[in-house]
Write a protein that binds this DNA or RNA. Structure first.
Length: 922
RNA sequence: GCCCGGAUGGUGGAAUGGUAGACACGCAGGACUUAAAAUCCUGUAGCCAUUGCGGCUGUGCGGGUUCAAGUCCCGCUCCGGGUACCA
């Protein structure tokens, strides 16, 4: 009887499902382990073979941990709000909820075929009102909170109000949009509306007027991480800067904690580094410059206060509030003209042009260190959103300032001994200071410290830490997202009472903005609360994915996001697997979101994801055929012969190519125009060329996991995806090796079952050699799973089965444990064979077998003996031989080795169980 | 520009500083078969010797540390990813 994977897999998937084998509940008698996959956005094109890579790895790990005695939480769900469904709705009028539901069903169907051990009873869908109630709830909590920097924690906004009532802003140390100052009396005499406006300055979820990335094509604003190279992440449309009133989350308040937290979690260095760069902490000084003949003062931020003697001009951002203060009447026209041109440039234009532009304001500032007069310019290379929107320019030691100085012919002063700054600035923080007054002779590091001290001592400014991390813009002018639980009274936002949640998405006639440019929700008929209009924008994609890992812990709870009990037990994610593309989006936002919930007592851990593994991308492997140009017969030439002709390469569907050999008949049917195609073959075959490209429809290189499952079975797909290479590496999908993995499963099958379908298994006692094979494999499998080296784990199974086949070993005492350790990788076939062995319960819930070290030690160890690093012969020694005995044996052996007799042994190095190295003279 | 990775046979890839190339694909040869498929066996880094055991060279390039380097250190080259006027 042959290995009939199709039947077996269907049977056991049904068995697991019917018996709810993977249903998980709190069990305080067992240690918990939480394994999470980044849940997918269910796109219309379904899963391709790259998606399950991480899911397979996490599935193997979950199954392994469960067998090791852990209570494993391994849930799955769908990130169901998103732009593609909405775009589709705009085109077709089909409600996004319907499209989304269809896509989810398709995904679910595909996932189910791969034999994952998810507890589907815990499924969450972010577009489900029962789920997004808790997204809205969290938003309201953020609205009702501010960040107390002294306590390093979010606190209820009423604490701040009480403080204002008693002391005004005195003693307030809170994260804020701008610095405010008022007394208690002033606060108490403010109108309600005025008070609300002030509080917006502090709330963690606040309505703010900020420069946003506006994408006219999509008709919505985008967060920084949704803009790539000045184009929208979705669709690649140009993005411009625009001042708009938007909901924002005060993520920046958590900058330092987000940075510090990285040291407490097990993520890859590169991912932590990305986050550190994104947070962008920089220490420097904020310094005040007086403006000549004016009362104005300009504050700048610099990380190089040591270079102050090299400041030859100052630059303001075009949007800076300082601009009107310092522009002289003579320069007014020029400045206005410049600002106008800058406004019309998109982010992308700026990047592509990279032209140096700017305009002089007519004013001068005074260098506070030496009193020199420095011209104040305006240029778009200075960003309004960072620091103070104004810089002191040091062309000698900053490349951007240098380019500007060159262009406008401004002086450049070298400040470091021995450097030439005529053609290039010297940006490195090293060397000895010159031309710098009292800083002369100091090293750069010393000079920075000395200058900082001088600034503080002389009241010229203060030391300041700046972060690049911006507050998250939280409004989207779209339909398919969570509505804000907010209504407007007197034009001031008020939160909906919790009892009114969830605020469900209303029906609209079209999914487009209104004629007046309002978001789609403005089309809804009854979009108000007690007569007051409701907010018409919706939340962004990351809202629903920011706390989903907590909801899985208690998905059906109607009274809380997660009960205290469930959260105390499941805590945070022990292992999170997903792609690197979320490094600066989801993984920042959800850390922020969780920290907020931690502060407010709803999450018991400060960091949501303890260990994170990034699975690599699976790229497509495209195939090409070569059509001969200007050929009447539509001929194609095989890859190896194409140099003899003038050809055009054409992408060909990889599903009609096997091992780069084209299925000619299938090709003729693929496209009508190829029906009469002729082929110039090599050895009777047509070989295709190949290239590694992104997996996508346009390259005809999409491989659907369903097809692979159909052909080889889920167990083969699982093993093969792991076997392909290291989990974290990017690699192309190449079916060339899949036969080998499939062959391994067939071999395993044959260890148990004869070709007639009889059970081969005997109850004979295993030999030491067989036990050695088994225990070696158990040990290796454990080690490999623990370090996520799943490709080598698969290899070790192959070696094991090959060895057992060679020994014709079909002994129960060997094969039963083998099934247990193979079960996480290939659960279906193991269940079937386990069943044949007469075992009743599921092998996937069996207890893991521990290896017995006594079968691992070799009785005799063969030591390679090397002389001066060169291998000479092998010396056999008992495993328990002492180092002295080994040395003695080498010396004795030395005498019988003629070729070395006139050389003197200087040293004998014995590496236990590894090698003996003999150092000889000459 | 900056920050991270990476470079090993024809291919994907193994190697806690200790016999480089595990395992798999592919290829070649063989067995079984009327034949094919399936299955099994042998060989497979390169070069030389293969009716001798074997020898030499080899982990992108150039140096170094070490008895011993794919692995550690210094200097390059190329490839991949992230990020960018962040002062």
């Amino acid at each position: 009887m042959e290995y009939n994977f199709e039947e077996i897999e269907k049977k056991w998937q049904k068995f697991w499902n019917d018996n709810k084998i993977y249903k998980t509940d709190i069990d305080i008698s067992k240690p918990k382990f939480y394994v999470l996959d980044m849940f997918p956005y269910p796109s219309g094109s379904g899963l391709h073979v790259g998606h399950p890579l991480g899911y397979i790895a996490s599935d193997i790990y979950s199954r392994y941990k469960r067998m090791k005695g852990f209570n494993v939480l391994h849930p799955m769900g769908f990130d169901a709000f998103g732009l593609p469904a909405e775009q589709f709705a705009i085109q077709t009028g089909q409600h996004p909820a319907i499209t989304t539901k269809q896509n989810i069903n398709r995904y679910r169907n595909q996932l189910d075929k791969m034999g994952f051990c998810y507890d589907w009873d815990r499924e969450v869908q972010t577009s489900d009102p029962k789920y997004y109630l808790w997204t809205q709830w969290a938003f309201l909590n953020m609205f009702e909170s501010f960040y107390n920097k002294s306590q390093e924690s979010a606190r209820p906004i009423r604490e701040l109000i009480q403080h204002f009532e008693q002391f005004g802003t005195k003693g307030v140390n809170a994260a804020q949009t701008e610095e405010l100052q008022f007394t208690a009396d002033e606060w108490n005499s403010k109108s309600d509306k005025e008070k609300q406006e002030v509080l917006m300055n502090y709330r963690i979820a606040y309505l703010g007027i900020t420069m946003v990335n506006w994408c006219p094509e999509l008709g919505t604003v985008l967060a920084n991480d949704e803009v790539i190279n000045g184009l929208s992440e979705r669709g690649g449309h140009p993005v411009e800067q625009k001042l708009m009133k938007q909901w924002c989350l005060r993520v920046s308040a958590y900058s330092q904690r987000l940075l510090d937290g990285l040291n407490t979690i097990e993520w890859t260095e590169s991912l932590k580094e990305s986050q550190r760069n994104w947070i962008g902490r920089s220490e420097g000084a904020e310094m005040v410059f007086d403006v000549l003949n004016s009362n104005s003062k300009i504050q700048v931020f610099t990380t190089r206060p040591d270079t102050i003697f090299g400041v030859t001009f100052m630059v303001l951002a075009p949007e800076s509030d300082y601009v009107p203060l310092v522009t002289t009447p003579e320069q007014q026209k020029e400045v206005e003209k410049y600002i106008e041109t800058v406004k019309h440039k998109t982010e992308r234009d700026r990047m592509i042009e990279k032209k140096v532009t700017g305009v002089f304001t007519g004013s001068y500032a005074i260098n506070p260190f030496n009193g020199t007069k420095i011209p104040i310019w305006i240029s778009d290379y200075v960003l309004a959103g960072y620091g103070t929107g104004a810089i002191m320019a040091v062309p000698g030691h900053d490349s951007r300032d240098h380019a500007f100085a060159k262009h406008f012919n401004l002086p450049i002063i070298p400040l470091i001994e021995g450097c030439d700054v005529t053609n290039e600035s010297f940006d490195a923080k090293e060397g000895i200071m010159i031309n710098s007054g009292f800083l002369n002779g100091l090293s750069v590091t010393e000079a920075i410290q000395t200058a900082n001290k001088y600034i503080e001592d002389n009241n010229l400014g203060h030391i300041k830490v700046n972060y690049r991390l911006r507050d998250a813009i939280f409004s989207r002018q779209r339909y398919w997202g969570e509505p804000f639980p907010v209504y407007y009274e007197n034009e001031m936002p008020s939160p909906l009472p919790f009892a009114q949640l969830p605020l469900e998405l209303p029906e609209v006639d079209k999914f487009l903005p209104t004629e007046t440019g309002e978001p789609p929700l403005a089309r809804a008929k009854k979009w108000n609360y007690m007569g007051f209009p409701l907010e018409t924008s919706t939340m962004p994609g990351f809202a629903g994915s920011s706390a989903y890992f907590l909801r899985y812990q208690d998905p059906k709870n109607e009274n809380a996001l997660v009960s205290k009990e469930a959260n105390d037990y499941w805590r945070n994610v022990d292992l999170y697997i997903g792609g690197t593309e979320h490094a600066t989006g989801h993984l920042i936002y959800s850390r922020f979101w969780n920290k907020f919930l931690f502060d407010t007592g709803f999450s018991c851990e400060d960091e949501p994801f303890k260990k994170l593994i990034n699975q690599g991308m699976i790229q497509g492997r495209s195939n090409f055929v070569y059509r001969i140009n200007n050929d009447d017969n539509c001929r194609f030439v095989s890859y190896g012969l194409k140099e003899n002709y003038d050809t055009t390469p054409l992408h060909v569907d990889v599903n009609i190519v096997e091992n780069d050999i084209l299925d000619i008949e299938a090709f003729k049917k693929w496209r009508p125009e190829f029906e009469k195609a002729e082929f110039i073959l090599e050895n009777g075959k047509y070989f295709c060329g190949y290239a590694v490209e992104k997996m996508g429809k346009r390259y005809h290189n999409v491989v659907n996991p369903d097809d692979v499952v159909k052909k080889y079975g889920a167990d083969t797909l699982r093993l093969y995806e792991m076997f392909l290479g290291p989990l974290e590496a990017s690699k192309p999908w190449d079916t060339a090796g899949i036969e080998g993995v499939h062959r391994f499963l067939k071999k395993t099958w044959r260890l148990f079952i004869t070709s007639e379908g009889n059970l081969k298994i005997t109850d004979e006692e295993p030999t030491p050699a067989e036990l050695k094979i088994l225990h070696r494999t158990i040990k290796k499998t454990e080690e490999d799973i623990e370090r996520f080296s799943l490709n080598t784990a698969v290899s070790s199974f192959m070696i094991c089965v090959n060895d057992l086949t060679e020994l014709k070993c079909s002994k129960r005492k060997i094969l039963e444990p083998l099934l247990i350790i193979l079960a996480p990788f290939a659960p279906h076939i193991c269940e079937e064979l386990w069943f044949f062995l007469g075992r009743s319960h599921s092998v996937t819930t069996a207890q893991w077998v521990d290896f017995d070290p006594k079968y691992l030690i070799e009785n005799i160890i063969q030591y390679p003996v090397s002389f001066n690093g060169k291998m000479r012969y092998k010396l056999e020694m008992p495993a328990d031989a002492t180092i002295e005995a080994i040395e003695q044996a080498v010396l004795e052996n030395h005498q019988s080795q003629k070729w070395i007799e006139n050389k003197e042994i200087k040293k004998i190095i014995v590496v236990p169980k590894k090698i003996i190295n003999v150092v000889v003279s000459g």
